[in-house]
Design a protein around this nucleic acid. Structure first.
Lengths: 335, 335
DNA sequence: CTGTTAGCGCATTCAA
DNA sequence: TTGAATGCGCTAACAG
């Protein structure tokens, strides 16, 4: 069990012939005018040679802060959240913070105990895309909290970082309408989170403005198979067949393409399909998906920045990040 | 800054009319025959009412252990690693451990400092699919280390959990050969890790046994676009066109399908394509990919179990997990 | 059965 | 300019 006895600041102090306090000051970077340049140099080189690393537990205990944030996500297996994490971690790292991931079970239901699983003590929580009722368990701890992709909160609620989801949907609808589509079915994710509720509402609102539009909705789970089934239902429903399937995510769009093809329909000649998220999947498919690009890293980065500001007691205005339609091969003029 | 003054064990002790030590014993679960049932009950209920949570920093400082493992992965954005994490976290959780993720920059090069980014102190490290030279920076810390998917190590090296990658490749090759394919091109990931080296070697070995086989290799990066280009190169190379593309991953296979189609070839009628990993992508594509299913969660779970054993000083035999060919629509009889 | 004591490694007073 | 002393919250000895 090598390495179990790492050098302590006292070891460094002894080796350098100074006191522990001096070591702490020098290594803490707050010695300007309190320790001589020469002594500081000695301390630093001795610490380096000994391979000294401050003990995080002791420091946390003393400071009362851990310099660690907890990022709560509904599912780790999704590329979007991986990118959110990457963005958060980048900003955190730049500020000497760490980020610990906590995949909330099922993404739904109150997170049982944000502190059991993530053993490390936490300075604050960043919750991403959580279901409405999942918040209780988190805000509970009285910890500083930032909400990502969860809609504008109350005026005095936690800071928020949101995506312009409604605008994204609007861009998709207008894209489809401009291509001549009127019979558009929304493949809606059957998930009770802000982002999906906004998508559903916006599709309805936007289509209501279009003369001759025939909106419809088909609900489905978040996986390929479920979306394929929903697409088949949508395309075989009584009445004129929809010419476009507007899907709540790229994964759903992939399923929709499969469903259409299983009926002998071609994408996009017979039916156009649009996605949302712009995952790698969007360009892995053939044809590539028309979709909406989400600045996932930026969401994570701004979320972490908001948490840092919150910890500093600084005011944190809500953020809304723009999204962008990416037109590719899966949509074309209505037949 | 609400909640900054959480109750301590002393607060609980005072409120319950006992000593701090008693609280510690009861809540630590080691009071059998040392504290009366009645007192224990009182302590527990008082702790509950006060919303007491033990301070992780203090506990770590005292115990010298943090009950936290660091999982180092080359890329978070990959479904495989998300699953490895899930498996590791599940086992960890069952043992009161947490898992912190550390995405090693670029997946290559020595991880600069596993302890800076992951501020939380660490009891041990689980490294997954790391490049050969990335190990130095990790094993360095003298921390208990487990290696995942990195090949059988030295006899006295760190414990390993590996996948039967060679067997997986063998199954794919035999599947293709049984379908009548002889001109098989290996779309090989241009990455210097054990798993990809084994794949390349095994394809060669296995094909060498087949009479009339015409093996070829095309190298590419790990993304769709790079694989598409490689597939185009493979399918337009001088000489008879390959009838099958054996790809080092599902993502590459997706690119290969696109490449084939861009040349007017159909999958699988004109060219068969096989993947590796069995990501969700494999069934999102049309046709679905013939691929090799990797027990990613199991890898993570066994890795965490190995680390726990290591921390207990128990012997840790190497583990090799079986993989399984999943035949789907992207492969068929050679034309 | 329960309470008292000591010390984990660090950052920070206060004295020198 | 530096050193000695203190306590963060907890657990493990040892007393009672």
């Amino acid at each position: 069990m090598a390495g179990s006895d790492r050098p302590t600041s006292r070891d460094v102090a002894r080796a350098a012939g100074v006191s522990q306090a001096t070591v702490s000051l020098v290594l803490g970077g707050k010695w300007r005018g309190r320790v001589s340049e020469r002594t500081a140099g000695t301390v630093r080189s001795v610490a380096g040679e000994l391979g000294y690393r401050p003990n995080a537990a002791a420091r946390s205990l003393r400071l009362g802060r851990t310099r660690t944030a907890l990022l709560v996500v509904p599912a780790l297996t999704h590329e979007y959240f991986a990118r959110v994490y990457a963005g958060a971690a980048r900003v955190a790292d730049a500020h000497g913070f760490g980020v610990v991931l906590y995949p909330s079970p099922e993404g739904i239901g109150p997170a049982r105990d944000p502190f059991g699983p993530a053993r490390a003590a936490i300075d604050g929580v960043i919750a991403s895309s959580m279901a409405a009722d999942a918040l209780a368990g988190i805000a509970d701890g009285g910890l500083p909290l930032v909400m990502l992709d969860s809609g504008p909160g109350a005026q005095d609620g936690p800071p928020t970082v949101d995506l312009a989801v409604a605008d994204g949907i609007r861009q998709v609808v207008r894209h489809l309408v401009a291509l001549g589509h009127r019979r558009i079915t929304h493949l809606a994710a059957d998930v009770d989170t802000w982002t999906f509720k906004v998508r559903a509402r916006t599709v309805g609102e936007e289509l209501a403005r279009v003369a001759g539009a025939r909106p419809a909705t088909e609900r489905c789970g978040l996986d390929v198979a479920s979306a394929r089934d929903a697409a088949v239902r949508a395309l075989t429903a009584p009445g004129p067949r929809p010419t476009a399937l507007l899907c709540d995510g790229d994964v759903l769009a992939a399923g929709a393409c499969k469903g259409a093809r299983s009926l002998g329909l071609r994408v996009p000649e017979d039916v156009s399909v649009s996605g949302f998220d712009d995952l790698e999947l969007a360009t892995a498919l053939d044809p590539e998906l028309t979709t909406v690009r989400l600045p996932a890293e930026e969401v994570g980065a701004r979320g972490m920045a908001a948490l840092l500001a919150l910890l500093d007691g600084a005011p944190v205005p809500p953020v809304e990040l723009p999204v962008e339609l990416v037109a590719r091969g899966s949509t074309s003029a209505a037949p």
